[in-house]
Design a protein around this nucleic acid. Structure first.
Lengths: 151, 151
DNA sequence: TGAGATACTTTGAAGTTCAAAGTATCTTGA
DNA sequence: TCAAGATACTTTGAACTTCAAAGTATCTCA
């Protein structure tokens, strides 16, 4: 039991950071003109455009947990690079809808593919029972942070 | 099975990012003059100083996966803030040992405490079996990235 | 002893983020 | 109807993080 705690702690201290670094490196090969942050924006916009949520700037910013100002800067860069487009809302002309271009959709697909490979790599070597535990545990991890969020 | 894959993927896309954000917010309260990055440097130095590894700058930089130049900048700032000290190596005068000050040790303890609470929060609500799976799964996750690292 | 390796620092530039102020548009209550 | 305030996004100025490449000091070994 105590041992699990130490292993989990070790994971959170070291491996967590490694994962982000490695993902960044892997994606630098396939999408050299996108940083990981930018890719996350593209991905959030792709997800929203598939009807999985609000595709307006404020909603995307909230999902990514960045301020509206930060998002504006990212979107301007991504629009310039041809991954996204801004579309003024017809009804409420203050609102901006963010939509992926063809290029944006392709980038999203590449990132998804990367994740799919990773997840498949994990699933294929883990016994069903461990998978169950992993998913349960990660859900609990998410819950912990969800409740911590309210200070 | 397929369902696990989707859940894992969702975790990697959204929750992963949330965790970093939340940790950052939580620590901003207790250690307002340290960013999360800086705290990670302090923590790595604390770990090394406990005999868990090489405490020279190059080793710390490798552990954190940043360049030597980046580490220099962080260490200079942290030395100025009183969390770390540089100590020239006696035998090889090119080398710099990084050691935590009292203040650095305290910061490390606070961060560790945060992690301990988080891990305890997870462990206490998860059945033993799920914990086993979680640890196994995370280990596999780490392995996946370890092997991807070699491009 | 001198050439090259090693360990760290400096420099210049780019990317990311935020708070706060600014602009445009909408909503609501008098 | 219209002004006050709310809302949605953008701009601005500043700080932080990072890197590559060049620079400095020191060591190693032939």
């Amino acid at each position: 039991m105590k041992d699990y705690e130490n292993q989990l702690n070790d994971f959170l201290v070291t491996v967590f950071n490694d994962i982000l670094k490695t993902e960044e490196q892997c994606l630098a090969k396939d999408l050299p003109d996108l940083s990981l942050r930018e890719l996350h924006v593209v991905e959030a916009v792709c997800a929203a455009s598939e009807g999985k949520g609000d595709d307006r700037a404020a909603a995307i910013a909230a999902a990514l947990r960045v301020t509206a100002g930060s998002l504006t800067i990212m979107v301007t860069a991504l629009e310039k690079k041809g991954y996204l487009e801004r579309r003024r809302d017809g009804a409420d002309r203050r609102g901006i809808h963010l939509v992926p271009t063809q290029r944006g959709l392709e980038a999203g697909a590449i990132h998804r593919e990367f994740h799919k490979n990773m997840v498949a790599g994990i699933c294929e070597t883990l016994p069903e029972q461990d998978l169950e535990g992993l998913v349960q545990g990660l859900t609990r991890l998410a819950d912990f942070f969800e409740t911590s969020k309210e200070n």
